[in-house]
């Protein structure tokens, strides 16, 4: 039972991490395009935006993957009580 719930926690944590990271990446990309569109000469090249998206994704995945498992485990314990 424990192993099953552990597996589920891991699965949920991964999904949550991916979702939150992608969200942040989308915000990053969105803001970049917004800034570019507000100017005559774009500030960010395509390389800047793409490389930035990759970097943001990696860093935010690291943060999210460290935070979500604990959060989900807590929630699961509270719900089971």
């Amino acid at each position: 039972m424990d192993k099953v719930s552990d597996k589920n926690t891991g699965k949920y944590a991964l999904i949550a991490s991916m979702v939150s990271s992608l969200l942040l990446v989308i915000i990053f990309a969105g803001l970049s395009f917004l800034v570019n569109s507000s100017r005559t000469v774009p500030l960010y090249s395509q390389v800047d935006i793409i490389a930035g998206m990759i970097f943001v994704f990696i860093l935010s995945m690291i943060v999210a993957a460290s935070v979500w498992p604990g959060f989900i485990e807590k929630k699961t314990k509270n719900n089971s009580k």
Binding site: G52, V56, L59, V63, V67
Partner: peptide
């Protein structure tokens, strides 16, 4: 963890 958040924020 905090450092990664700071690095992201600085970025």
């Amino acid at each position: 963890l905090v450092v990664h958040v700071i690095a992201l924020a600085a970025f």
